[in-house]
Design a protein around this nucleic acid. Structure first.
Lengths: 184, 184
DNA sequence: CCGACAGGTTAGCGATCATTAACCTCGGGC
DNA sequence: GCCCGAGGTTAATGATCGCTAACCTGTCGG
């Protein structure tokens, strides 16, 4: 189903980009890490930017679609907890993608950047809708600001890998729900 | 007292680095933004890396020293609230520095990177100590993890400038204290 | 058998980068 | 009156980058 070679390259590129930044990784270096050397990558991707684009668009799509699936048919508080769990789960499984997503999105070519921004906007809106349902006094713009701040908290995961995954999951869940004002 | 020209360059560099990343800004471009052209910068700094180093070491020093000053002689809960306020204040006044600090620290030369890491570690420890005093059940590593997560929340400020500063300040304060489990 | 194509290789091109070299030009202490 | 250093300038250098060109090789359907 999935072109395993492309996916393999994408995974390796994600870890390299996460470690040294998109501009800090050369095509030759990325090729070598994939077991080939330099220009062979162009048999799989049209350009270095195309690697980044496919990586980040894919990430945004998976986040949005996963979030939609988990929030369906729940009360607002349950939905927020489910969204938090889903986001933590993704962030722990794909730390490199999370790092690249919010450090290097500005290096995307224009069309991919617009696509990513649109997907992220819809993901924020998904959260904000549940947050406003749980706290009717919140105005839309403030709900969005709170969701962004919660993402900042959850996306800090990869930077500080201090705790084993299970402990980190519980800690982040409790903190995020506390920040969003969802009290059990 | 302060070499105004160097500081001016540092401020301009911060906004450019924040917008397009350290590697995304050329020396020529930075020079032009400072009203001179290209290599004139080397009359003020030894290298492009030295600009980044002075910028980030200065930021880390100011954060640590400000935090120490504000936390002195307070109860743990008061100290945490003061630290949160201080950090928000700094992040709102110097959005660009916050962005560069956690996006481009890996581009630092080795010695400056070590210096920044040491200062940040001490800043984290300052918070963690107060957090453990407020929640004695927390183990040190978990306290540090929570502090990192709180920084992630607070440092998300510059990315989403959705609210006017005063509203943002109040929102972040409430969320951060909620995340840290400091209930009024 | 064979031809074509997927997936590699190395060599090289043009652009851009940080940095240096060489030179200019003023303002102020002697 | 003069020199000298602070703070500019342009030109050039060597490295590195993304990418293309040209070529090779094994596999596999007919």
């Amino acid at each position: 189903m999935a072109g395993t070679r492309r996916d393999e390259i994408l995974a390796i590129a994600a870890t390299l980009f996460a470690r040294r930044g998109y501009h800090g990784v050369s095509v030759a270096e990325l090729g070598k890490a994939c077991g080939m050397s330099g220009p062979a990558l162009y048999k799989h991707f049209a350009s270095k930017e195309a690697v980044l684009a496919e990586m980040l668009v894919g990430t945004s799509e998976e986040l949005l679609q996963g979030g939609r699936a988990r929030a369906r048919g729940l009360t607002p508080e349950e939905a927020l907890a489910a969204l938090v769990d889903w986001h933590i789960d993704f962030a722990l499984r794909h730390r490199a993608l999370i790092v690249v997503q919010d450090r290097d999105w500005s290096s995307l070519p224009d069309d991919a950047r617009e696509q990513v921004r649109s997907l992220q906007r819809r993901y924020v809106e998904l959260w904000a809708k549940q947050l406003r349902a749980a706290h009717p006094a919140l105005r839309p713009v403030e709900a969005r600001a709170r969701v962004h701040a919660a993402f900042g908290l959850l996306n800090s995961t990869p930077h500080s890998a201090l705790l084993p995954d299970e402990a980190m999951r519980a800690t982040l869940r409790e903190m995020a729900l506390g920040a969003l004002g969802v009290r059990p």
